[in-house]
Design a binder for these strands. Sequence first.
DNA 1: AAAATATGTCAATACTGCTGACATATTTTT
DNA 2: AAAAATATGTCAGCAGTATTGACATATTTT
Lengths: 155, 155
Amino acid sequence: MRMMSENEQILTTPISENEIPQLENIELLFFAYRDFVSDPDKQLAHRNFGRAHHRVLYFVNRSPGMTVAELLDLLRITKQSLGRVLKQLIEAGHIVQNEGKSDRRKRLLYPTQKGRDLILELSQPQSERLSRALEGMDMDEKSKVVEFLKRMIGN
Amino acid sequence: MRMMSENEQILTTPISENEIPQLENIELLFFAYRDFVSDPDKQLAHRNFGRAHHRVLYFVNRSPGMTVAELLDLLRITKQSLGRVLKQLIEAGHIVQNEGKSDRRKRLLYPTQKGRDLILELSQPQSERLSRALEGMDMDEKSKVVEFLKRMIGN
DNA sequence: AAAATATGTCAATACTGCTGACATATTTTT
DNA sequence: AAAAATATGTCAGCAGTATTGACATATTTT
C-alpha cells in the first residue's frame, strides 16, 4: 500500500506573516512594479520596442556620453543582449555612437532629440504615477519613502 | 546638400527633474525591484524554475483553493503562459489540483507541504531585504511607505 | 437542447535573457 | 616594436516567458 509522504500533504491554510515577515510588502511591491512598467509598455509596443529599449534609452538620456561597458554594468545584462536593442535604437535614430576622443576604442552613447522626445513620452505616465502615490505627503514623509527605496538597493 | 533634421541633433546634457518630475524615483524603483527579484533567482535556477514559477507558487500559497481563472487575473498573463509553469509545478509536486465540489469544471489549486517549504525558502531573502530597508523607522514612517506602495497600484 | 463557462492544448511567434567563441581596432605593458 | 590587455561587435545556438488564435472537452446555466 502506497503511503503519502509527508511533503505531499495538501495545505488549505494561507501562508501568513508569521511564517514570513513582510509578506504583505512582498506582494505590494510586486503589484506596484507590475503596474509601474505596464504604463510605458503600450507606447513601446506600437514602435516594436520592448522594455529593454526603454531602459537603454533611459540611461543614455540620464548620462549622455556613457560607454557601452558602463551601460552593461548598469543594466547587468550581457553584451549580446544589449547589442540587439542598442542596434535597433541606433537604426531608428534615437541614439548615436561617437568614437571616444581620448580612447578611440570606446563608443560614447548620446541621445538624439528624437530619443529625448521618446524617453520623455515614456516617462510621463511613470512620473505621474509616482507623483500621485506621493501626493499629500510632507517633505519628511516623502524622504522616508525615498530612503526606503534606496535601502532596497544593493547586496 | 543634406541638412541634418532637427531631431537628429545630438544632445550632451542629461535629462533632468525639470523635464520629468520623479526622475530619480523612477530610477530608484527600477534598481530596487531589480535587486529584489534577483535574490530568489539563484535558488530558482538550480531547480530549473524561473520567476513565473515563483509568482504562481506565491499566490497559490497565499490563497489556497484559488482557481486557474483567478490566478490568470492576478498575474495578468495568458492561459498559455500559465499552463506551462503550472504543469511543471504540479509535476514537481509543489502544487495539486482538486476538482471543485460545487462546480466540477473548476480546478482548485493548493500547495503541498513541499510547495510551502519552497515558497518560504524563496521569500526569505526578499523578506530580509524589506526588513532591512524598513529598519529603524517608527510605525508611522513604515505605514507611509506601505501607503506609498498601495497607491502605486492600479489604474 | 443550446449557450456559456472553465480549463487544457496546439501551433506559431516575439522579446529578452544566456553562453561561448571569435574578430577587429586600439591602448597599455613589457 | 612586440605582446598583452581592453572595448566593442558579431556569430550561432539555446532557454524562459510572454503573446494570439484556434480548437477540444467537460460541466453548468439558460
